[in-house]
Design a protein around this nucleic acid. Structure first.
Lengths: 350, 350
DNA sequence: TGCTTGGATGGAACCGCTTCCGGAGGAGGA
DNA sequence: TCCTCCTCCGGAAGCGGTTCCATCCAAGCA
């Protein structure tokens, strides 16, 4: 492979001049620039990214840390992130955290300086040590789906979302409303589920409905777990008439469990999810919608701002809203069983 | 930030010794190693990835090129790719190609040496120039969903898949079967749609059914286009009784168009997709399933092999199979309209 | 005791770029 | 004509690692 020195030799100029041409410096005479450009083309020269990174201290890479594979909502956020990153001239490095132990690996590898100019962290918490280290290295961080004092972030009001979902069910006449979410001591440190549960409990209290601890179930995030937890709820002596799941992924597990237990939805069980991922529309799931793709796009914008001019830390709250589809109904009209999905499809198609 | 020189000074050793400790060389006395390690810990030292890359010529990064945002199938492939990459100790750099003009940008940036140790290309074609350049730079390439002589790749037999889908429809008694796919001169260079169409035509010919050019429609990939094309098909004097879409994304567009035109599926129209993305299961779509996640995982394995020991180019074919769900029915039993999705869900839940 | 041998170590050279400094040369003014 | 100033350019230094080579020292052997 050719180097800048070879290009310089061939063009009959110094390496500094070639570098200036490469970086569009204006201190190069047009004639010289043409000669250099000709040499570059002739040699098929491409500058080494590593050498440039070492020399400038900038890598033109942004690290995006998140559990991509297991969470559909994260992928939708990523859809908003990817275009922004490449439009900003940066590379997008995906740091997938699927297993808890990976989290530490990833955070360690992130701490390696000279790897990323900026960091986008989705849903995961950041230890003070990592934050301090990044700050010392001058690497800006933007958080998505999480608030942390002193750090720029994009989030929604999860508690309000939880209230929204619960009030909807209360309004339909439900009293025995279950909550199904992530374990709150989960090894990843996810906490949106806990905030949504707080909203759920607040709404119940506001309505004068007592929170029944038997109806609050949690476990590792995932559809399988949700299915198992739902089976438990349905087997209760006094099963719930409605379930609020802390995410659509989990709500889909609830639907699956209800289906295999032959419990009609929404005839005998109403289900509300959270996130409004694409499948939710196809499954006809009533859910609390949050702007996933927008959150990713906004986060990149904030990160690029920080990269460009050291914008001060700021926190942006995005709105969320209830989307009523076909998995919720009043206690008094159980007539919809079996038609869920037919209605869904029409609802989902705009 | 501290450098290797500072660590060496603090430990009272030379930089070479620190480097040896960092790289687990065995030519360091245990006592020395401990002293160096203590200095590293005390200083919170992390080696610079850029410097290491420049010095060794390896970046420990793999570039993955694909249109992620618009194609659900690509995201599922990515699910297979991500774990393999990080298990191999590499970083995953996502190079998203959404707009045709991005393709050239990305390929140019990929040509920058010292950025990636290996390349995974999904669905997109590679120009001879890029291939030659990568070969010269010693950067192995693995293709997914595409065959190219002399390059390692993972693919399926798209033509056989197309025959599978078409025979299924023929077997149900359909004669007027439409094909809806990507434009064959599309600016990205996707070609799986064309191969699937070839299988469709072959199956029709084998069955003695003439290929009606009016029933073969193509356009830019995407659900919106598919919807528009379907409207055209349904408005034909003699509309098709079945549509084979070259991807699930497109098949979902077909379903949406049928729904808004009040054409019952599968009552008056049968629909077959291709890929078996997750939503297909929820939509109850009959489709040709291909192992998307597996294809990604296998591709990474092949790439890691090539990275490790220069494995020879090889081509791997994965199986695909027809999955019959609720969007196809015989011409003689039109009784399913309106129940599609109820059946679907049960079918989709295992 | 003196020499050989080999393991541990220090440090220079090198990877390929950017940047800065100093110098060359031309234009313009006195 | 000479000096000044400005533009353009050459090339050395430096970024922070790895690697190789020379050196040192201690153990082993005669």
């Amino acid at each position: 492979m050719s180097t800048i020195a070879r290009v310089a030799a061939r063009a009959g100029v110094g390496v500094g001049t070639v570098s200036r041409v490469l970086n569009d410096s204006d201190a190069v005479r047009p004639a010289t620039r043409r000669r250099v450009q000709a040499a570059i083309d002739a040699l098929g020269y491409e500058p080494s990214a590593a050498a440039r990174a070492l020399s400038t201290g900038r890598t033109m890479a942004i690290g995006v840390i998140a559990p991509f594979v297991t969470r559909a909502s994260v992928v939708e956020r990523l859809r908003g992130v990817a275009p922004g990153v490449s439009d900003g001239g940066y590379q997008l490095v995906l740091l997938d955290v699927e297993r808890p132990e990976q989290r530490d690996d990833v955070l360690r590898s992130v701490a390696v300086k000279g790897r990323f100019d900026g960091l986008l962290v989705i849903s995961l918490p950041l230890s003070e040590r990592v934050v301090a280290r990044m700050r010392a290295a001058g690497v800006p961080i933007v958080l998505v789906d999480r608030r942390q004092p002193g750090l720029t972030g994009v989030h929604i009001d999860d508690e309000a979302g939880g209230r929204l979902a619960t009030r909807h069910l209360l309004g339909l006449g439900h009293k025995r409303i279950a909550f199904l979410g992530d374990g709150e001591e989960n090894p990843y440190g996810f906490d949106s589920s806990a905030r949504r549960r707080a909203g759920y409990e607040a709404a119940l209290r506001d309505a004068g409905v007592e929170v029944d601890p038997d109806l609050v179930v949690t476990g590792p995030h995932g559809r399988d777990t949700a299915r198992a937890l739902t089976r438990g709820l349905l087997a209760l002596p006094a099963p719930p008439t409605a379930i609020f799941a802390a995410s659509d992924d989990q709500a889909l597990g609830v639907l699956e469990a209800a289906s295999s237990a032959a419990v009609p939805v929404p005839g005998r069980l109403s289900v509300v999810g959270f996130d409004d991922i694409e499948i939710a529309r196809h499954a006809g799931l009533t859910t609390v919608a949050q702007p996933l793709e927008t959150s990713g796009a906004l986060a990149v914008d904030l990160l690029l701002d920080a990269l460009a001019g050291g914008a001060p830390p700021q926190s942006r709250e995005l709105p969320c809203e209830l989307v009523v589809r076909a998995t919720t109904a009043g206690l008094d009209r159980p007539g919809f069983s079996g038609m869920i999905h037919a209605r869904t499809t029409r609802g989902g198609v705009s």
